[in-house]
Computed example of a mutant assay.
Amino acid sequence: MRYQLELFFTALGFFTRLPVPAWVPWSPERLNHAARFFPLVGWVVGATGAAGYAVFALVLPASLAVILSMAVTIRLTGAFHEDGFADTCDGLGGGWDKAQVLAIMKDSRIGSYGTIGMVLMLMAKAAALIELARLGATAPQGTVAGVAAALLVAHPLSRLAATSLIHLLPYVREDDSAKSRPLARRLTPGELTVAGTCGLLPLALLAPAEALGALVAVIAVTTWAARLFVRRLGGYTGDLLGATQQLAELAAYLGLLAAAHIAPLATA
């Protein structure tokens, strides 16, 4: 049990800026085995965002509460996944072959594709959450997922999406200095079970139609991303995992919105 706790803190320390206990050892091998708890880190990030939204919404309009809650989660993670998404936009947008794409993604500077992609991603997530807040305020109680439920579901589920690529695709960077190099190992069946449970369990917070909408949207986006990554690079990198998390998080919000809009049509 202590070993599992150490692995969780290893994952938490890698993907957030939260301090971990001094007694937790670190090694590339431990980070490798900590992949099972990446979706559980999403519980922490999602809960922090949900709590932030609940506090801000007490004194501010829902739109501002959403934006500030997003700022809280970005601060918590150090924009780790957002940086990966921006690098992915730059690499896939500006690179013609595998070597060029990888070189661009490794550059610490952000280009036009990354800037535009990141702005659009943040705007889309904010707009989706604001719309969920609006629908949640006007719909009968319990019929539409609110912002807090959406955050609690989307963060673990999107991290499960990224974790699935670690298991399914090969790691394509050859330099040992890459931060995500220690993650380049397929998960065991037991590790997959833990990751899957942590990623899927929050769906129980939603109505069945909403849970299905979010899950289908995330699976569709993850499948599309995996096919794109294999076609362009032959596998994944750490930046591509970050991009997958961002895309899957947005997909979860859009799936919830789609379910909310389809449900009244189905009962009409």
Rank of each mutant, 00 (worst) to 15 (best):
Q141C: 06
Q141T: 13
Q141R: 13
G142H: 05
A145Y: 08
A145I: 03
A145N: 06
G146M: 02
G146E: 07
V147K: 07
V147T: 06
A148E: 11
A149G: 05
A149Q: 09
A150L: 03
A150P: 03
L151G: 01
L151N: 01
L151W: 05
L151S: 02
V153S: 01
A154M: 10
A154L: 08
H155S: 02
H155D: 11
H155R: 05
H155L: 05
L157M: 07
S158T: 07
S158M: 04
S158C: 05
R159F: 01
R159Y: 00
A161C: 08
A161W: 09
A162L: 15
A162P: 02
T163D: 01
T163F: 04
T163W: 10
T163N: 03
S164K: 09
S164E: 09
S164Q: 15
I166V: 12
I166S: 06
I166E: 02
I166D: 01
H167A: 07
L168G: 03
L169D: 10
L169P: 01
P170A: 08
P170K: 02
Y171D: 09
Y171T: 00
V172G: 00
R173M: 01
E174G: 07
E174K: 15
D176Q: 15
S177V: 04
S177H: 13
S177N: 14
S177E: 14
A178Y: 05
K179S: 15
K179E: 10
S180Q: 05
R181F: 06
R181W: 02
P182Y: 02
A184K: 01
A184N: 04
R186F: 01
R186Y: 03
L187W: 08
T188I: 11
T188Q: 03
G190M: 14
E191H: 06
L192Y: 14
T193Q: 11
V194H: 15
A195T: 12
A195R: 10
T197G: 13
T197Y: 01
C198N: 12
C198Q: 07
G199W: 09
L200E: 10
L201P: 12
P202Q: 14
L203G: 15
A204S: 10
A204D: 06
A204V: 11
L205G: 15
L206E: 08
P208V: 03
A209L: 14
A209W: 14
A209R: 07
A211Q: 14
A211M: 08
A211C: 13
